[in-house]
């Protein structure tokens, strides 16, 4: 067996640090340099499947070993394969698209150590988000109490996502990977109702009144 165990460990480490890293992201696997046999190929594909990583094509192995749905995308040969990318990063996605896929309503405080992870749409928290708690949404994050922990909006690749809170005291806010720590937060924002958005890959904050 090729040395994939260590590679899978690294992959798990990435997935742990960034929970939404592989969510909704189609992956093409190129095994040419590994040169696995048929069983090894299937073992690798299964290992990715149980991690909910969506493999849409495999290259660099004999296509006859593969399930037809995993046929190579091209590699120079003719390929009529059309791949449907639902939820994948699309350029200039309209802002409203983020909330159209169903939102998740949390009707209790999000306590320290808890993570709310909702890659499909908005997260609406009716209570507060404590220091040391984390809310990760594919869409926007709405907090009707005090945001003291972390809020990560557009985590599956949506620069149009927004973060709102009634009282801002966040440790970290992030939209589509761009982030602002508590240290970088303008002091006049603290304790105010705030909206956070992304403009030219930079976090922009507005006080709502």
């Amino acid at each position: 067996m090729p040395p994939v165990a260590g590679w899978l460990d690294d992959l798990d480490a990435v997935a742990r640090q960034s929970l939404a890293f592989f969510a909704n992201r189609p992956v093409v696997l190129n095994l040419a340099r590994l040169a696995p046999d048929r069983n090894e190929t299937n073992a690798i594909i299964d290992a990715l499947k149980i991690r909910n990583i969506r493999v849409i094509a495999v290259e660099g192995v004999d296509p006859a070993w593969l399930d037809p749905s995993l046929a190579p995308l091209g590699s120079g040969k003719e390929s009529g394969k059309v791949v449907d990318f639902p939820g994948a990063r699309a350029p200039a996605q309209p802002r409203a698209a983020a909330s159209s896929r169903g939102s998740s309503i949390i009707d209790r405080p999000v306590r320290s150590g808890q993570t709310i992870f909702h890659p499909e749409g908005d997260v609406i928290v009716l209570g507060s988000v404590s220091s040391g708690a984390e809310v990760i949404a594919g869409g926007s994050v709405h907090v009707y109490g005090t945001l003291r922990g972390r809020a990560l909006a557009g985590a599956t690749g949506n620069p149009g996502a927004l973060i709102f809170c009634r009282k801002f005291q966040a440790e970290l806010v992030s939209i589509d990977g761009s982030y602002m720590t508590a240290e970088q937060t303008p002091p006049d924002l603290i304790g105010k109702p705030v909206q956070i958005r992304l403009k030219n890959d930079a976090i922009v904050t507005d006080i709502l009144d």
Binding site: R108, R111, S112, G113, Q114, S130, S131, G132, A133
Partner: peptide
Amino acid sequence: EVSSVRDSDRIIGLLD
């Protein structure tokens, strides 16, 4: 004090 309150918050999450 802050560290005690944060740890208590964590415990309340576990109680839930």
